[in-house]
């Protein structure tokens, strides 16, 4: 019996101490990690979406509340005027969630570009969604919000050959982005006025 109690006590204390330490560390490194993700993953994608912007979209960002989810919105300024925004969306791919950044022209409510950021798709097949220019270019210039679906599902998106599920995931992410945009647009406009 004493053995039993000792086991329980030691394990509990050890787990609690470890949990506490990790929570503190996670909190301490949160900003640094967020910064690294922005620099290493978001920055190249934003660069691909916002061509010829006059500002640094990573610097000019703000957070808006979408229901109870916090979303980061990046601003693209052309000749000093904020004309476009970009934000994250995601869809389910073959190997997990596909993270997508979607850029929207706020004057015309039009997609200006889509770029895949984080994914766990198969190298050489689904992973091409990140690099294949023609696949990504399909979304450009379309009105938002709109429904996107791959051709196999009766939609209008050409799939990457051998990667239907990935393509479906990206289409889903863009569709979701449209809905997100509808919800957060008032907040975006308010923020841009400031």
């Amino acid at each position: 019996m004493r053995d039993m109690i000792k086991m329980v006590v030691v394990l509990t204390v050890l787990s609690a101490a470890s949990g506490g330490l990790l929570a503190a560390l996670k909190d301490g490194t949160k900003d640094a990690i967020e910064n690294q993700v922005l620099q290493n993953e978001k920055a190249p994608a934003l660069h691909a979406i916002f061509l010829n912007v006059s500002n640094d979209p990573v610097e000019d960002r703000f957070k808006v509340m979408d229901g109870d989810v916090e979303r980061t919105v990046f601003i693209g300024k052309y000749d000093g005027e904020p004309k476009a925004v970009a934000f994250d969306s995601s869809g389910s791919g073959y190997g997990g969630d596909i993270g997508v950044i979607v850029g929207v022209n706020i004057e015309k409510d039009e997609l200006i570009g889509v770029a895949v950021t984080t994914h766990k798709e198969t190298p050489g097949l689904g992973a091409r969604a990140k690099t294949d220019k023609t696949f990504i270019a399909q979304f450009k210039g379309n009105a938002i919000p709109d429904e996107y679906a791959v051709k196999a599902d009766g939609g209008n998106v050409d799939v990457l050959s051998g990667a239907t599920i990935t393509s479906r995931g990206v289409a889903q992410a863009v569709t979701r982005a449209g809905r997100i945009y509808e919800r957060i647009k008032p907040e975006i406009l308010e923020n841009l006025k400031k």
Binding site: L14, L22, L25, K26, A32, Q36
Partner: peptide, 23 residues
């Protein structure tokens, strides 16, 4: 079980620090 808790703790420490400073 105790060893695994100790090891796992330090692994996550490594992971977080590496993520923050050697991305």
């Amino acid at each position: 079980a105790c060893f695994i808790i100790i090891i796992a703790t330090f692994v996550i420490v490594t992971e977080l620090v590496m993520q923050a400073y050697a991305y």
